[in-house]
Design a protein around this nucleic acid. Sequence first.
RNA 1: GCUGUUGUAGCUCAGUGGUAGAGCACUCCCUUGGUAAGGGAGAGGUCGAGAGUUCAAUCCUCUCCAACAGCACCA
Length: 652
Amino acid sequence: MPAITLPDGSIRQFDGGVTGTDVAAAIGPGLAKAALAMQVDGKLVDLAEPIVSDAALRFITRRDPEALELIRHDTAHVLAEAVQELFPGTQVTIGPSIENGFYYDFARNEPFTPDDFVAIEAKMREIIGRGARFQRSVVSREDAIDLFTKKGERFKVELIRDLPESETISLYSQGDWIDLCRGPHMRSTADIGTAFKLTKVAGAYWRGKPENPVLSRIYGTAWRDQKELDAYLHMLEEAEKRDHRRIGKEMNLFHLQEEATGSIFWHPKGWKLYRTVEDYMRRRLDRADYQEVKTPQLVDRRLWEASGHWEKFRHAMFQAKVEDKDEADRIYALKPMNCPCHVQIFNQGIRSYRELPLRMAEFGACHRFEPSGALHGIMRVRAFTQDDAHIFCEEHQIAEETVRFVALLSGIYRDLGFSEFRVKFSDRPEVRAGDDATWDRAEGALKEACAIAGVDFELNPGEGAFYGPKLEFVLRDAIGRDWQCGTLQVDFVMPERLDAVYAAEDGTRKRPVMLHRAILGSFERFLGMLIEQYAGRFPLWLAPVQVVVATIVSDADPYAREVKAAFDKAGLRVEFDLRNEKINRKVVDHIEQRVPVLAVLGRREAELGQVVLRRLPGREQEVFSLAEAVAHLAKEANPPDMAALPADAVAA
RNA sequence: GCUGUUGUAGCUCAGUGGUAGAGCACUCCCUUGGUAAGGGAGAGGUCGAGAGUUCAAUCCUCUCCAACAGCACCA
């Protein structure tokens, strides 16, 4: 006699067991038609699932956000059926729904290519048109293994074998096609609709392990209706226009070329942007009591052996030798990170607890031989500059330093236009240095610090650094990919390995704790994010060219020089456009170049000593006297950390 | 590194087994025009690199390099 409580609070009684289908029908034909699945006591299940005891029930219709996940998962099943119909002998593996869509991994000697999509999509539409019911059945482990062994599906068999004993094994069939699946699903393939599209193919290792066979993965996107699908595809197109690689080219900020794979050639405008951010960061660090240092690029391998990096990361380190025969046996490595060098500075002389926490910062140029497939524009490169710092402190200072760090990072992200970011907490990896007790302390300290700092994090199990747990501050790029930028890592291991000590208050020698931390992560990656964040239309203080002085007639050239000189003097980044082109043309060109302000000068302005300012890409213009224009723009061009200061103090 | 795709002028791209084309950009000329592309002329390419097949390769085959998408990696 289940009593079913509906979301509006009403309760319905039923005699004996009922299914969601029954309840929906009892409520009304509209709902019976619209219900795709249901939530029973918060758990999403098939509509056909029996409800045997009192429960809170909520129906899922196409309007609910949960419908998207169901549609995507169902579409993955249909994809698999279509592929097996078209390409007999292909084995199925797994096919989950993901953000914006789904994928399915297939084992096939010949990988799929995008050319196969037309046929596969057509077959999928045919299967959806058949409207076969999704039928759930529960089977024993033996029967399931037997079934998939007979079908030649060895990956499914492996999956079943690895399921825990307690797991119920369920199968879903749609017509003649059957798959191992936890569910839930909608009523039939017809519920999927037609708003889906296959998007790309990729190789993917079986179970994510490089030693396993490579499967052929087909990605797709699926939505509730065509309008949503179109909107998504349009959003992707728009996002591509923000791509930092594209904007970098269009704005002439940087380039990459074969001879220096993974290293950036910064052009004048790109470097101006870089320097603007660097100058800003340096001011912030100075003010936050960091001491800036600079350490060597080339360091003897002995130091890397001592730190443990040689053993773990040698394959990814650039090594250098010289021809001199006395030095021939010596191997140097380009530093892949700065921490061992910073410890060397810490180790000069005798440190006292009074000096702690000691915050040692470096804009450290590092090189790592990243796998070729990992390279990505300027976001993942082989030569990069970390805004690195190491905080040497006592264990009881970890929490306070974390709080200070999070505050500094948040302020900087806000200034740079990133008010939202996610934090991941990565704990001990399988391969690591240091014993479990040390890891317990490090993880405990970092977690406690997060609680005090009010940091909400998601757990990222097993993803910590080999020497300690870390917080990752993650930003999202234009097309939705996540990138780790900031980080904070607690390290009890490196001070031990490199023998860092200080004299404690009681006169004994103690090991400091090292906090590795970066805010931008690397300038290169962060600038990539920044370019995408603003789509190249930077706020005035960041814009590499802040103002272009454009003339309407060449008679205004002398006045233009005067105007530019006045802007220059106020510290503004100004360029001329005295070309023999019409003003219309100049406006278009500088909009394309994403120049924030155009100062337009004609005969009239020259005579009256005025400047017409137009904010690009807008159409509005304002007329100022030259002095007003300079003051106005100089004020706006102030970096946010200097905005509180009077403009003349900044200019000086 | 793995799977797939791509590589032609500075940029975006078309094209062909008989040594190449467009638009924009560039140079010059005309035009001095008041806020989203004025007109004309010209110059510019070992068709990513190497090898092979062929009478002949930018095009077909192989190897390498690089880029792109995803996977794996990320101190």
